[in-house]
Design a protein around this nucleic acid. Structure first.
Lengths: 139, 139
DNA sequence: TATTGTTATACTCTATAACTATA
DNA sequence: TATAGTTATAGAGTATAACAATA
């Protein structure tokens, strides 16, 4: 049952682990520069695309709805997010980024250096190949 | 100063973000299957390679030394890790995985499916190309 | 004096369970 | 009765600051 993977696969797995670690580090420190936690930054980035009901936020963040309450509370206290009523269902609260929230999210996205910089060292052909390989991996 | 990245780079960045998210998810759920948190799993995996002083654990985990105390406490309470004195410096405590701790770490490593499975769908040539590209990115 | 590990404190994220107001 | 959001609670990770033992 426990197939021993070949050395090449092992090395690729380790390299992916490295990429994951660096990406995370980069993301957290970019968030910290904006006085945001990682979770707050992820939620704000989601809302920057479109307003979402609390329940759907939880699904997308893969956490329990009760956690979203607290994260949105803290972002709302800073004026980055606001809760709006849903006209079609009075139980629902829709969270939306404010103008300031969108500004912060944009600035956050721009300060994500890791994902861009090492990529800049690759030729266009390499980036195309990398894109295709990643697409296949994610199936 | 804010170079707008080209669409190809944007897509690759998004794909990497996807890989990072999946890898993390996979790692956390593998840890949870062993009743470990992500932080505990990472620390145990490190100790599985070699015993380390508390201070060095903190450096490798990129967190404050005070946090390591608690994580090691919880692993030690479960018999997966133990603290040993350093004969050359009585201030230092060396954390080491127990036999049971190494067994758990091995089992954890084997249950990491994501990193292995999507890779299995790639040809050897693709894996070599991916390895070389990742190496250059991390360079 | 400087360093190692710990303790104390406070905050955030996390899941679970119980509650409310709607549907 | 079922669902959306919240509250209450408890555990874990995190950083900061202060401390004891040792160098």
């Amino acid at each position: 049952m426990t197939n021993r993977p070949d050395p090449l696969t092992v090395e690729v797995v380790e390299l992916i682990g490295e990429v994951v670690a660096r990406f995370h580090e980069d993301y957290e420190s970019a968030a910290a520069e904006h006085t945001l936690t990682g979770a707050q930054a992820r939620l704000l980035s989601l809302l920057c695309l479109e307003p979402l009901p609390m329940r759907r936020l939880a699904r997308q963040l893969k956490c329990e709805p009760s956690n979203v309450t607290g994260i949105v509370d803290r972002l709302e206290a800073r004026g980055l997010v606001e809760r709006q009523p849903d006209p079609t269902d009075r139980r629902v609260k829709v969270a939306a980024a404010t103008a300031e929230g969108r500004r912060v999210a944009r600035s956050l996205r721009e300060s994500l250096r890791f994902a861009r910089e090492p990529l800049a060292g690759l030729s266009e052909g390499e980036r195309v190949a990398l894109r295709d390989t990643l697409r296949r991996m994610l199936g």
